[in-house]
Simulated scan of single mutants.
Amino acid sequence: MIRQIDAGVDEASQKKQLRKLIRQGTIQYAGYIPGKIYGRLSCSSGKRMKAKNRIFFSNEEEAILAGYRPCGHCLKERYKMWKLTHSK
């Protein structure tokens, strides 16, 4: 996992490094640190977050092991299953 702010010294270099990792297939999912939510890179909800709140994962297993839950927008079915197993 890699935080966006750790990918470079400024936002331009961070984006360049992250694009490279995405093209290589190293990064497949993005997460929202404060809410501990992960989702697809194409998710419109994820694209609105601030760089300091963004983290990237190589796969879903890595996100889940880090304690993140599926996004209710781009991973609806996985979120429904998560909600069923984590409801109080």
Rank of each mutant, 00 (worst) to 15 (best):
K88T: 09
A66Y: 07
E60S: 10
K15T: 12
G39V: 04
G46K: 06
Y38R: 01
I5K: 08
Y29C: 01
S42Q: 08
G8Y: 03
K52Q: 13
N53P: 00
I55A: 10
G8H: 04
I27H: 05
T26D: 14
K88F: 10
Q14G: 05
R78K: 14
K50R: 15
K88C: 07
F56S: 05
K52T: 06
D6F: 00
G35P: 02
N53F: 10
C43P: 02
F57T: 00
R3Y: 12
K80T: 08
E11T: 09
K76T: 14
S13W: 00
E11D: 11
H86F: 05
T26C: 11
L65T: 05
R54N: 03
R40Q: 10
H73Y: 15
L75M: 12
M1K: 07
E60Y: 01
S58L: 01
E60Q: 12
Y79V: 01
C71H: 04
F56M: 07
L18K: 01
L84C: 09
F57S: 01
T26G: 07
S87Q: 14
Y38M: 02
G31W: 02
P70D: 06
C71D: 06
H86P: 04
K15H: 13
Q24Y: 08
Y32R: 14
G8R: 02
Q17N: 11
A12F: 10
M49T: 13
S44A: 09
E60D: 05
